[in-house]
């Protein structure tokens, strides 16, 4: 099934998505990978808040190449999601509803997805030039010192992805 989804989205939308659905995402997405997840987790552990309100938000696991002058972003494909498995359940428990990445997830992540009604989308790995065309704005909102691993807020338009694991526990892998 092909679906056009507006991001952010709430649990109800997540519940309507099934593994195997082709989706086109339009709206606002946050970008974070290894180092930003570590920082966010450390912030939560010492009682500080996150740099953004995570409720109903989607995180894209990605670290772009630098934008050439006049461009919004460089190459921007997904990174391997399993490296974020250690950090992801705590963020889902705070209200995150979507994740975009590639590759298998841990049992703890799958349990947190069912518990919180979260959808995991896969974008095509190694298609960073193609995917960059679907990103219409990008700004660093925290951790600028991390370079490509900084926390970004981006706008996507018809960003192609596949629901690889849905919030009911079904998975394509």
């Amino acid at each position: 099934m092909e679906r056009h989804i507006t991001v952010p989205f709430d649990r109800t939308v997540s519940e309507s998505l099934s593994a195997g659905d082709y989706v086109f995402l339009t709206g606002t997405v946050y970008v974070a990978r290894d180092a930003a997840h570590k920082r966010m987790t450390e912030a939560l552990e010492c009682g500080k808040g996150l740099p953004f309100d995570i409720k109903d938000q989607t995180i894209y696991y990605m670290g772009p190449s630098p934008a050439r002058p006049g461009r919004v972003i460089g190459s921007a494909g997904p990174t391997t999601a399993s490296r974020m498995d250690r950090y992801a359940p705590a963020l889902m428990d705070l209200g995150q509803t979507g994740m975009i990445g590639k590759g298998r997830r841990s049992e703890q992540v799958k349990e947190a997805m069912i518990r919180n009604k979260v959808t995991y989308f896969a974008a095509v790995g190694g298609a960073g030039a193609l995917l960059s065309r679907c990103i219409t704005s990008s700004e660093v909102i925290a951790y600028e010192d991390l370079g490509t691993e900084a926390l970004l807020k981006i706008t996507v338009s018809d960003f192609p992805a596949i629901v690889v694991t849905d919030c009911h526990g079904a998975s394509l892998y």
Binding site: M62, S65, R68, G74, S75, A127, G128, A129
Partner: peptide
Amino acid sequence: ILGQLKENLGIASKEMIPICQDT
């Protein structure tokens, strides 16, 4: 997916965007 990868190669060389962000 392979079609997207083919298209990606064309965009990368034509528009000088790295094929993959992990260079």
